[in-house]
Write a protein that binds this DNA or RNA. Structure first.
Lengths: 107, 107
DNA sequence: AAGCTACATGTAGACAGCCTATATATAGAA
DNA sequence: TTCTATATATAGGCTGTCTACATGTAGCTT
């Protein structure tokens, strides 16, 4: 998966993966890898700053937790985040429609 | 249309729009706007450097032409460019499948 | 004649997001 | 003790798209 392609869609991915329940950063990376069948292997240097950015934006809220002697920062979707996710899904649909209209004019 | 979203897909758009015949830069911008129903309005500062980059890569070839007293640089797809376009189409399909698998896990 | 719009190309520099590389730390297995 | 998996974090680099500007022709309006 190309880095440039992912650009602008990272937020949608992170919000979507948190939709069904809170997760910490490391688990988010694993969830993205599993859900995509191994195609998405997002580095920590991408995910952690992005999560903080989304929290600053009010879309996520986080709290520290402890599990097996290791500290985790667990993120959950806020109400604003749910709304943002809906917006991202809508934007994704129109985005694919627009690019598709150029790449596949027949359809 | 967001600038970040377009990132990594510009090449595919330019190659696709040149598939059915040569065009000059200004006409390419108009073609993208028309094909997308007005959603794509790519600035010249994006298109002209991108076309040169694609030519350097061997995917496009260009030559100067004159029409109505104005000079145009007309671009056409090379053989390599056709192959690149096929690759871009394939990449687009897997890209949408991957993002879709996260955004719409049900499908 | 002057001014405006459409046509047509091009570059410099800003911006922003994703990446690599690095640092730190615990737990458990080899 | 060493290696791997788990877990978080930041600094700096890279690069493609954008804004803003520069240049010039043609044709229409005032």
């Amino acid at each position: 998966m190309n880095a440039d392609e992912l650009r602008g869609h990272m937020d949608a991915l992170l919000l979507a993966v948190l939709e069904h329940g809170p997760l910490h950063g490391y688990a988010i990376i694993e969830a993205l890898r599993e859900r995509s069948g191994g195609a998405l292997d997002v580095p920590t240097g991408t995910v952690y700053p992005a999560l903080r950015r989304l929290e600053r934006a009010g879309y996520l809220a986080s709290e520290w937790a402890e599990a097996g002697g290791r500290r985790r920062r667990t993120y959950r979707l806020t109400g604003e985040g749910q709304a943002a996710l809906a917006g991202e899904r809508s934007a994704w649909r129109s985005f694919t429609a627009v690019i598709g209209s150029v790449l596949d004019p027949s359809r």
